[in-house]
Structures are given as C-alpha cells and as structure tokens.
C-alpha cells in the first residue's frame, strides 16, 4: 500500500501519462465523430509531451537556459527540445486532419462515421 501511495505522490505525472494515453486512444476508437477522433489523437500526443517533460524534471531545477559561468540545478534540456519538436509535428498533423475533415463534410454533409459509411455504401 505504501508503495502505491509513494508512487502516486512522487511519480503521479507518469500515472497521468498512462491515463491520458488510454483516454486518447479510447476516444479515437470509440467516438463516432471524426472531429472527436482528432481530439482524441491530440490528447494521446499531449500525454506524450507530459511524459517527456516529467522525465526531464529535477527537484529544484530551473529552466535549462544557462548563461556563461552560471551554476546550479537545471532540468534536462533534451526532452524539452523533443517536446517542442513533437508539438510542432502535432500542430501540423491536426491542421491536415481538420482540412481533410472540412473536405469530407463538404462532400458528404456528415461528420459521423456511421452515417459516412452508409452514404458511401449507397454510392
């Protein structure tokens, strides 16, 4: 029991990462709505950002911007760079996904997967 409490109080960001990842994946699979699927994808990717940022965390560390000659504790800069890059990738993907959804809506007049399948089966 103590182990669990310890884990939840000190490492809760990792638990949150797993939870968010699960929620995001579930949204993508279970939601009927195409926009919600994309939101699910975003939640999934945000979980990843949280994972990398928490892996960089050092108790009492400050942002890794180091003026020459300075000393002290800094958080690890590499995961932060990874997150920055991953955010850019995520934004680009969301933009492409939404533009595709706009086109699908224009063609079929629906955002629901089920209705879309029916419309396409009729053609």
């Amino acid at each position: 029991m103590n182990v669990v409490v310890d884990l939840l109080t000190t490492q809760y960001t990792y638990a949150l990462f797993a939870l968010l990842m699960g929620i995001g994946l579930y949204m993508m699979v279970a939601s009927e709505n195409l926009v919600k699927k994309v939101i699910g994808l975003n939640v999934f990717q945000t979980a990843l950002f949280l994972f990398f940022v928490s892996s960089a965390y050092v108790v009492g560390g400050s942002a890794p911007i180091v003026p020459s000659g300075a000393s002290g504790r800094f958080v690890s800069p590499l995961p932060q760079v990874i997150v920055l890059t991953a955010i850019v990738v995520g934004v680009a993907l969301t933009a492409v996904a939404l533009s595709l959804i706009v086109r699908i809506y224009g063609e079929y007049g629906t955002l629901r997967e089920e209705a879309l399948r029916e419309v396409r089966a009729d053609e």
């Binding site: 994309v38 990717q45 994972f51 990398f52 993907l93 492409v96 996904a97 086109r103 699908i104």
Partner: peptide
C-alpha cells in the same frame, strides 16, 4: 473517397508514429 482514405491513414499512421515515440522515450 481519397479524403476519407487519407483521414483514416492519418489517424492510424499518427497513432503508429506516436507509439514509436513512446518506445523511443
């Protein structure tokens, strides 16, 4: 049809790439 196929590809492909990133992490 191609827009629907591309969106499907995007959702699945991005999930795959993200899983890869989890592994790299």
């Amino acid at each position: 049809e191609s827009a629907v196929a591309a969106l499907k590809y995007l959702l699945i492909g991005t999930t795959g790439a993200s899983l890869f990133l989890v592994g790299v992490g």
